[in-house]
Simulated scan of single mutants.
Amino acid sequence: MVQVTPSASKAVRDFMQEKNLVSPLRVFLNQSSCCGPSLGLRVDEETLETDDQVVVDGQTYLIDKGLGVMTGGVTLDFIDDNGQQGFTLTTARPMGGGSCDCSSGSCGSGGCC
């Protein structure tokens, strides 16, 4: 299940109109080598049999049913704080994952730190 806050819904609508897009948006699992799994959001033309679909304010969001079960549900929000803007995806259940020691640089360049 995907929940979308009002601020995220407006930001998505504005983005999709600006880019002249009408495609669904997919919440997906982004595997990372040292930081563990994280969630991502992308435009996706393909709806699969294993997808749950949620429509919020006319926008379709897709999430694999298994990912939905694993996360316990996902909330999409849009943050606008002191010039820092962006979407956030939070889960009802912690996803766990790897650890990262930023002080030692153990992740290498481009790590999670």
Rank of each mutant, 00 (worst) to 15 (best):
D51P: 10
S104T: 15
M1G: 09
C113Y: 15
V22M: 14
G58V: 06
G96E: 00
Q53Y: 07
V12I: 15
V4M: 04
S38N: 07
D77Q: 07
T5I: 06
G58W: 05
G111P: 00
F15W: 10
F15L: 15
G66V: 11
K10A: 13
V4G: 05
F28E: 15
C34Y: 14
S103F: 04
D80M: 03
F87N: 00
G73Q: 03
V2Q: 03
P24N: 12
V4N: 01
S106F: 08
T47A: 14
L76D: 06
R13Q: 14
S104Q: 15
L76E: 01
D51R: 08
G58L: 09
T47D: 08
D51F: 12
K10I: 08
S103T: 12
T90Y: 00
P37G: 01
V4H: 03
D14R: 14
V2Y: 07
D77T: 10
T75G: 00
C102D: 06
Q3W: 05
D14Q: 14
V43M: 14
A92Y: 03
F78N: 04
L25M: 11
E45C: 13
P24E: 10
T91G: 01
M1W: 07
G66D: 13
E45L: 14
N82R: 14
L62M: 03
G97N: 00
L25S: 07
S9Q: 11
Q31W: 02
N20E: 14
S104C: 09
G98A: 02
L21P: 11
C34I: 04
L25G: 03
M1E: 11
T90M: 02
D52Q: 15
V74D: 01
T50H: 14
Q85R: 15
T47H: 11
M70H: 06
V22C: 09
R42I: 09
T5W: 07
L21R: 15
V27D: 00
A92N: 04
Q31P: 13
Q84L: 06
D77G: 07
M95Y: 01
V74Y: 03
I63V: 15
S7A: 13
Y61C: 05
